[in-house]
Amino acid sequence: MSDYNFAYLDEQTKRMIRRAILKGLAIPGYQVPFASREMPMPYGWGTGGVQVSAAVLKPDDTFKVIDQGADDTTNAVSIRRFFQKTAGVAVTEATEEASVIQTRHRIPEAELRADQILVYQVPIPEPLRFLEPSEVETRKMHALEEYGLMHVKLYEDISQHGDIATAYAYPVKVEGRYVMDPSPIPKFDNPKLKMAGIQLFGAGREQRIYAIPPYTDVVSLDFEDYPFQPTKADHACDLCGAEDSYLDELIMDDAGKRMFMCSDTDYCATRRKGGHIGAQGAPHREDAA
C-alpha cells in the first residue's frame, strides 16, 4: 500500500480531475475535457470510471463496484481489489452500505441516497457521434443547442423497427439544456437518472467527464406519438420474484429452458434474504453465494 499514493493517482492529477468534476456538476450534462491518465488496465475496462472514483474516494469511504448489475464479475472484482489495495478503503456488495459505487451498464435498483455517489464507466460520451462524426461540429451543436439530429436517430429507429428500438444508451436531455448519453444503461434505468445521489460519468479513452447533480431533471427524448417507455422483460425474477427489477435472461440447457433473474445481484440477494422466493428459486441459505 505504501508503494502508491492514496487511490493510485497523485494528488495533482486528482485535483485536476476534481476540477473537471466540479465543472461538470456546475453545467449538468456538459462534457468536460480532462487529461486522462494511463491506468494499470486497458481502455474499455473502465479507466474513465476508475479515475473519477480515485478522485472522489476518501479513506473512510465504502466502495462497491458493479458490472451489468453484478458484483462478482471479473471486471467488478478487479476494480474493487484495485481500490482495496491502493486506497485501503472498505468494500461492500450491499448498495445500501456503499458511499461510492462504480458501475458499468446499470443503475442499482435500490434508490440511492444523497450521501452516495454513483460513478459510471463510459465508452462513448458523445450522443451525436453516430450521425455526425465531426467533433468540431458536434461541439458546435451542443453549444448552440442544435439537437434536431438526435431525433433523426429516433426517427430512423421507428421507420426501421416500427418503434424506438434503442434499448441502451438512450439519449436524455439534462435540466432542459444538454443532450447526454447516459452510458450504455438499459433505458429501463433512465427514469432513475433523476435521483438524490451525485452521478459522475468518466470516459477514459475519450477524455471526458460529465455529471448530473442531485435531483436534476433528466428527460428521455421521444416523439409525441411514440412516447418514451422504460421497458424490461415482461416477467418476474425467477429467483426472488421481483416484478419491478431489470432482468437478465439465462439459457439453462440445450432444450432452451430459460430463466429470468435480477441483473442487480445485491437487490436479488437482499430480497431472498427477506424471504421472497421466485418461481424457480430455493429458500435463501447463508452459505450460498
Binding site: 450521425l131 442544435e146 434536431g148 439530429l149 431525433h151 433523426v152 426517427y155 430512423e156 421507428i158 421507420s159 426501421q160 416523439f223 409525441e224 406519438d225 411514440y226
Partner: peptide, 27 residues
Amino acid sequence: LRMNVSAGGNVGERLMAVNARHYGNIR
C-alpha cells in the same frame, strides 16, 4: 445529404431541427 440516413430521415431532419416532434406528421 446524410448518406447513412434514410430518405425520409433526410427530409425530416430540417423539420426536427425546428422542433417538429410528432413522428406521424414528420413522416
